[in-house]
């Protein structure tokens, strides 16, 4: 009589042989995308249902850290796709020559037109100051600077929202940006290294307002049933963050990578985004947006510098920020 263990061993062998044939698609992304509350798990399950592959998300800090990681690894990287850069980073990313064109032209629901050959958006949002219902609610940078509302912001040298704010001010105020920052100096309680610290300080009551996204109140409303948070609408318009993904040129799974990019702008991916990544989907899913999601603001003018202009303006935007706030 055969020992039952032989069967088990045989099965294990068969299983591992099957595993070896399953192609693996590795996607580098930022940390919050892969947490159990982020979009990662649901998207992994949905894509694996259709691709016959093993999808592996790998979290690496924030968008900027993601790009640094890729540059550090160069052509030897394991990544097939990088997901989570924003338009302030795509110029530098394209410059590295590490990305390949995606070759897709889907219909996107963005307030701006999109024709980047290397990078495809999967979600977007407006930067905005977030405050409490009944608290100070200035309606422009000027009004904010003249008020005594206190704000927490992020450092543009270490955080992507921080850089977004610096570019926002730079685009609206141009040469007078440093002057506006000087006027804002007495409103700024402090500058934090990243978004998390700033938002934490705001929730602790250290400041009236925090730089975040127009979609932040939706998180509190939907996930915590707390309607007390509001995003302020500014007359000057709101700078956008468009989050994109790109195929890594050195990928050993080009077809699978292309398939994922198509999947990324489909309903299965896009419908997960609003209540996990708390951003607007790049393609409106069939069911529309969840109730209470981002209905409070609809900025008339969406501001977004093209990737090359953002890269060119970055240094002067950070200089204006530093000079103005150091006075």
């Amino acid at each position: 009589m055969k020992h039952p263990l032989f069967h088990v061993a045989g099965l294990t062998f068969a299983a591992s042989a099957a595993m070896a044939q399953t192609p693996e698609l590795t996607i580098y992304t930022y940390d919050s995308f892969v947490t159990e509350w982020g979009p990662g798990p649901a998207i992994e399950a949905a894509f694996e249902e259709v691709c016959g592959c093993d999808l592996v998300f790998s979290g690496h800090g924030d968008g900027a850290a993601l790009l640094s990681r890729l540059r550090l690894e160069g052509n030897r990287t394991e990544a097939d796709i990088v997901l989570g850069l924003d338009t302030n980073l795509t110029y530098a990313a394209a410059e590295t020559g590490l990305f390949a064109p995606h070759g897709l032209s889907p219909d996107l629901d963005l307030p701006v037109s999109w024709d980047d050959p290397d990078f495809l958006p999967y979600d977007w949002g407006y930067f905005a100051f977030v405050g409490n219902e009944g608290g100070p609610a200035p309606s422009s940078f000027e009004e904010l600077a003249q008020s005594d509302a206190s704000i927490v912001i992020q450092d543009p040298r270490s955080s992507t929202p921080g850089l977004g704010l610096a570019l926002w001010v730079q685009q609206v105020y141009g040469d007078e940006a440093a002057g506006l920052w000087a006027d804002l100096a007495d409103n700024v309680v402090t500058v934090t290294p990243g978004w998390s610290e700033a938002y934490g300080l705001f929730l602790e009551g250290e400041a009236d307002l925090v730089l975040s996204y127009t979609t932040s109140p939706a998180y509190h409303l939907i996930a915590e049933e707390d309607a007390s948070k509001i995003a302020l609408r500014f007359d000057e318009g709101h700078y956008m963050q468009v989050e994109v993904a790109g195929i890594v040129a050195s990928t050993d799974q080009p077809d699978l990578a292309r398939q994922f990019m198509e999947f990324m702008v489909s309903d299965a991916f896009q419908s997960v985004i609003p209540t996990t990544n708390w951003m607007f989907p790049a393609v409106m899913p069939e069911g529309g947006l969840p109730e209470g999601f981002g209905t409070d603001i609809d900025p008339e003018t969406a501001l977004l510098l093209p990737a090359d202009a953002a890269a060119a303006l970055r240094e002067s935007a950070i200089d204006a920020w530093r000079t103005g706030l150091s006075q």
Binding site: S158, V191, S326
Partner: peptide, 15 residues
């Protein structure tokens, strides 16, 4: 240093 420093004046070498 950065979080309690109150602004870009409180920039350290490590930052």
């Amino acid at each position: 240093a950065l979080t309690l420093g109150g602004g870009p004046r409180a920039t350290t070498v490590e930052l």
